[in-house]
């Protein structure tokens, strides 16, 4: 699948923002969130900016962005519509949570429940994003049980990296934040590893034989494509990445997304120096680079069964 930068930026930035929002809501519920208004401004500011810029970036993917309000109408059938509805709904409790925290310096009482509601809706939004991909049967690398957990776990993990960095940068060193980073890293790493193993060892059930129905005659191969140049379908659905490049990028993904943040987070844990804050910020930046690599591969490595009509022998 063609890796569109607008969609990659959207899913990684808004994923991180929603992950951060979920963690802030949960920490508020556990009464572990400092009521500092500056911290509220920084953390909710980063979370909601990431979400908002991500959503605006996704609009660049549209051919007729001025009609985007239409996308709220089909939530009964479409995960893309549900994602839009939930993303918009999340702003309401998130805005109230921000009003309490930044405006009144209060993360308890009614504001706490706003934070929890924002966390639940943010989780549902990321789930919907994952379901958009996980329900596309023509794409084997997406339509499997590892995709939704990947989206959820990476949203939480990248959110946790930024949470840890923000807390340290604003002088709120806690034992909990690095622990949250490590607790979200482990499932994210495991799920991504299983995902890559899954797509490396399995193929779509469709073949050139089932695509054409000519299997009873014998092995099917394309003799003549129905075009002289590339078409929308071959460009959008026929994107291919060399296997050696994919392997290299996966290693970069593991290093930037998991290895560097792990080392830096452990190094920064338990101290409150400016160096610790710098290490945590570097961990967050490294994780953000890593998740972009991961998301780019998520598209570039995915094969669509329509390629079977255009010369591919497997999808």
């Amino acid at each position: 699948m063609h890796p569109a930068y607008s969609v990659i930026f959207f899913t990684t930035a808004s994923g991180m923002g929603y992950g951060l929002l979920i963690l802030l809501g949960v920490l508020a519920q556990a009464e572990m969130l400092p009521a500092s208004r500056l911290l509220g401004l920084a953390s909710l500011g980063i979370a909601l900016s990431a979400v908002t810029f991500g959503l605006l970036s996704s609009m660049r993917h549209l051919g007729r962005p001025e009609r985007v309000l239409r996308a709220y109408t089909q939530w009964r059938s479409s995960w893309l519509s549900r994602e839009g509805v939930l993303a918009t709904m999340t702003y309401v409790p998130a805005g109230l949570f921000a009003a309490g925290w930044i405006g009144f310096g209060d993360v308890g009482g009614i504001w706490r429940f706003c934070g929890l509601a924002a966390a639940v809706l943010a989780g549902c939004t990321v789930y919907s994003t994952g379901m958009i991909y996980a329900t596309l049967r023509p794409i084997h690398a997406w339509c499997n049980r590892w995709v939704v957990p990947t989206y959820l776990s990476l949203a939480l993990f990248t959110g946790a990296l930024w949470l840890n960095a923000i807390l340290l940068l604003f002088g709120h060193a806690t034992a909990a934040a690095p622990l949250v980073v490590l607790l979200t890293l482990l499932p994210a790493l495991y799920i991504k590893w299983r995902y890559w193993r899954f797509i490396g060892s399995t193929r779509a059930t469709s073949t050139p034989e089932t695509a054409t129905g000519l299997g009873p005659i014998g092995k099917v191969r394309l003799l003549d494509p129905p075009r002289t140049q590339t078409t929308y379908v071959t460009r959008e659905m026929g994107y291919r990445i060399a296997r050696k490049h994919a392997a290299k990028l996966r290693r970069y993904g593991y290093v930037f997304l998991f290895a560097i943040p792990f080392v830096l987070t452990v190094a920064a844990a338990g101290t409150a120096s400016w160096m610790a804050a710098g290490a945590a910020a570097a961990a967050a930046l490294s994780g953000s680079v890593g998740v972009v690599v991961e998301r780019w591969l998520f598209f570039a490595e995915a094969k669509h069964v329509v390629t079977l009509y255009h010369g591919a022998q497997a999808a």
Binding site: L62, G63, R67, A71, E236, H304
Partner: peptide, 13 residues
């Protein structure tokens, strides 16, 4: 709105 998701969902191009 030109989101192109329908073209991704079609196995037949």
């Amino acid at each position: 709105i030109g989101c192109k998701l329908c073209s991704w969902a079609c196995p037949y191009g």
